[in-house]
Design a protein around this nucleic acid. Structure first.
Lengths: 298, 298
DNA sequence: AGGATTCTCTGACTATGGTCAGAGAATGGA
DNA sequence: TCCATTCTCTGACCATAGTCAGAGAATCCT
């Protein structure tokens, strides 16, 4: 890694922990310990199970119990046993808690404003752009890819979202029954595999790879959650799948796509795929792509 | 302020405090309380007076005293009375302290590396660029301008640096005696004023304004420290001085500049100055500029 | 039914970060 | 010379954040 880059990152870290980090705690914890403030924030409008909170914030169960007690005593939250499983307890914000949370929200706005205020309009615009870029790339760096069974809860979640989205975007809607859908067996070893991308533990994308014996590998059901777009995740899926296809001895990688997914088309081309005649009769496909893989192009 | 901007800043704050802030403390304070680590870091190679440290870190004198004691006991620093004023004490790193600080330095590199590592080369380059931009603009937002007497220590520091730099950059060197230098009286009320820019309390730039009775206002001795360039500070000086000249009833603002300072020339033009014939016979000037101020151009 | 497991809570404890009110030494100013 | 000021240190506090080892209740599994 380039020393100049490291240096720039270090300067960034320093500036940002001084200007943002310090202020952040200061604003957030103005009249309440910041542990409590963070917890209050994390509970959210909808309420949460205690164990989820513990997981998410990475806190000791004794500690969180005490924090909740203190918030309960202050009348900000109510803790009740979950009807289904009475060992589990759920936390909800009370009216007062909601008000308090709104105040935290306002403070967060205030902090953001205080960073922008000293700048002129042009500088503000540039700062906000650059922050967006940093935000996106740091987030991109925390996304993990993992191979899972297509029946895994996270996989199913992604597939459901994928189908819903196709339905909305295709002019004539999308009926899974009419499409050449691989059944789950085709996307699990040894006939294929299925990748899920996760961000902070939540599934945010998927991609399947068919590895039919003695035939080209084929990418199916690649999807990225709207929130996780612009993170280079599509590109990452493609290169990960390509690598795995090579590892399984394939030298051609194929995929088909619908014309309404034009961003995808650009991606495939940028990643070295070229358009080829239809190699299947998927009714929903308008474009077919292929890439020779496994050794540098001659 | 634009709500979309506020939102982006908030997302940035969140991502960055999670990814950078948390890791930062984790890396820094691995085997030493982070208060001590920060102090050790801030002492620096050269040593510091205790009161400076207190000022800089904003800590209670009792607290810092205890921290220093603990570092002394660990053999990392030595505290001695300042020979000149034996109430003041200075801290230096011992050999072991220097080693410890080097380790902190390495960790900081490690942290920076851990942010870049998951990204590909193109993403890294973009992240580093964006971080540079954020860093610059956040820093720019913390610079303050203040009017001071030209004899103030900070003002003199800036002027010394300014002259040194001219000497280096002008082809034929720079001899203050030959130049049409305003004497200090011309840059203090009521005949003028002198601004100093400060970053974290350190002077990083200056600019003088002559306000000769019944004549156009004139900018003199504008300088920005090399470390503080690219922060839009020149532009800020110009608009601050313009505003003050208007407040003093002037409707024309003038300045002269040397041809080797070409960045400056571009700045003046971008700020609405236009080149005019020489209005003085400053031997070191090659270009003269003027701007009508105080009301929108007709 | 009964033991293992899961989930939360309690009590006891620790370290860190920090504040506050002087005390004591050195210095500066009248 | 003496009083006020500056600077550091000490002792006595305090709150927050967190850990650890059970205990008790509910549930799951066989």
């Amino acid at each position: 890694m380039d020393a100049g880059q490291i240096d720039q990152v270090r300067r960034f870290n320093r500036t940002v922990t001084e200007r943002v980090g310090a202020l952040h705690d200061h604003f957030l914890g103005r009249d309440r310990p910041i542990g409590e403030a963070r917890l209050l924030w994390e509970i959210g409008e909808a309420g949460q199970e205690v164990r989820q909170l513990r997981e998410r914030l990475g806190l000791d169960s004794g500690y969180i119990s005490r924090l909740l007690r203190s918030l309960t005593d202050a009348g900000l939250v109510a803790v009740e046993p979950e009807p289904g499983d009475r060992r589990v307890r759920t936390v909800r914000l009370t009216e007062a808690g909601r008000a308090e949370r709104t105040m935290l929200d306002d403070r967060s706005d205030e902090l953001a404003g205080s960073l922008l205020r000293p700048l002129n309009a042009a500088q503000r615009a540039r700062l906000v752009d650059a922050m967006g870029e940093v935000d996106r790339l740091l987030t991109a760096a925390t996304v993990t890819l993992a191979a899972v069974d297509p029946d895994h809860a996270d996989a199913r979640h992604c597939l459901r979202s994928y189908f819903t989205e196709l339905q909305e975007r295709f002019e004539a809607g999308f009926d899974p029954a009419r499409s050449l859908l691989p059944d789950a067996g085709e996307l699990r070893p040894p006939y294929g595999l299925f990748l899920v991308a996760r961000l902070h533990g939540e599934p945010v994308g998927c991609a399947g790879l068919k590895l039919p014996p003695g035939a080209p590998a084929e990418i199916k059901r690649m999807w990225v959650a709207p929130d996780a777009r612009r993170l280079g995740l599509g590109r990452r899926f493609l290169s990960e799948l390509e690598e795995r296809a090579v590892r399984h001895g394939r030298d051609v990688l194929r995929l088909d796509t619908n014309k309404t997914l034009n961003a995808a088309k650009g991606l495939y081309e940028a990643c070295g795929f070229r358009e080829v005649p239809a190699f299947n009769d998927e009714p929903y496909a308008h474009h077919w792509f292929e890439k020779r893989i496994g050794r540098p192009p001659a």
